[in-house]
Design a protein around this nucleic acid. Structure first.
Lengths: 211, 211
DNA sequence: TAGATTGTTAATCGATTAACAATC
DNA sequence: TAGATTGTTAATCGATTAACAATC
């Protein structure tokens, strides 16, 4: 059932939610697919198809009820039931992510950080515990986190990745610039910030050429 | 010419490059599309098509020359000529990005940060200057950065975004959880870390259901 | 030459868009 | 009822995959 929703649709869903929350705050109660399409630079029909896939639908002439659409999207995206996650590598990026409020809004609770460097262990600014890696096996026997965020140096990425997988992690958001190999039952998403920027820059240059 | 390469192909290119650098370091001189496909979990033909789009090609029976493939990919991705970028919002994430070494490797040089908070102005850990926003107009008349990274609080995102665009920024990598509106000549990529995690988590749960 | 591997053309698959029927 | 808007079915478009010819 979950997989009836196409992967491209899924990627757009959080942005619908963002837009809906914006207009909700402006006091809007209903919205048409046309209005959403214009604001988000998408096709009208695409918006309707996307929303049909995860919501109970709108009403002709009136449009979609903003509140119920927000509920349906949050439901689908799993923002309601909070998932526990752990983070490895409390460097600058790791610390920023540990204290990043956006995760919580999307239903994630980073319950602890891990780092091999004694100097980095202790409490983060927002009060999250940072333990030594060696504590993770017993920790995760108890807490059973399945989601891991990987922010260690590139050269340690594969090793730490293996360690996470051995101790119950099934989904990894990888910020290291490294080609990671994982078993089939584990999913991994490499989120390389510089790659995004590189692709953005290519697009920008392509656009300039066209002018 | 640039736009003959499909957008999905483009997204895979940095990952080819990553893998090629890995095997280069292991001393491998040539590589077949089959080997790449297996390592990266892609189709063999897809690899050949992707590589054909941006490289001078391989040789039957021998495969692709790792070195020249790396050169072609770096060339296409623009890793060779360094682009200047600026960053707005020197909070935790902003500071982490200012000092993030990965950007430089991909051909980006963050030449300065900007923040309205006097306490955040000065030097970052790696020695990057952080100025008051008011300095940006004259700064960018001189340096003409076209790429901007946006890390300000969600509520300030649109305002700062406008300010960037008014002063010559044409491509924005947005880390704020906010629906931003920009003129047609500006491109924007919203890089929301929590969204990535949410989609990963949905996939993980879908996978578990299948079992 | 035979075999491995590339590159290309055609077929398939999936996602987007267009046309239109259903409905309030 | 007329008009606006949703939802669906069919057509188009683009990307992936399969089949195969070219080449070293």
């Amino acid at each position: 059932m979950t997989n009836e929703v196409s992967s491209n649709t899924k990627k757009r869903l959080p942005f619908y939610l963002e837009y809906l929350n914006k207009i909700k705050n402006e006091g809007q109660l209903n919205v048409s697919s046309k209005a959403i399409a214009i604001a988000m630079n998408l096709g009208e029909v695409q918006v309707r198809k996307d929303l049909a896939a995860v919501s109970s639908g709108g009403r002709p002439k009136i449009g979609y009820e903003v509140d119920s659409l927000i509920r349906d999207l949050e439901e689908y995206l799993g923002y309601k039931d909070t998932d526990d996650a752990v983070l490895f590598g409390a460097g600058k990026l790791g610390l920023a992510l540990l204290d990043y409020p956006g995760f919580y809004e999307c239903g994630f609770n980073i319950i602890a950080g891990f780092d091999v460097d004694k100097k980095k262990q202790g409490l983060s600014e927002s009060g999250k515990q940072i333990f030594d890696n060696s504590k993770f096996p017993s920790f995760n026997k108890k807490y059973k986190a399945k989601i891991g965020i990987l922010c260690v140096p590139d050269s340690k990425a594969q090793e730490v990745c293996n360690f996470m997988v051995e101790n119950g992690i099934e989904a990894i958001l990888n910020f290291a610039q490294a080609h990671l190999i994982v078993p089939d039952n584990v999913i991994i998403k490499s989120e390389n910030l510089a790659y995004s920027l590189a692709l953005l820059s290519i697009e920008m240059k392509a656009k300039q050429h066209k002018k």
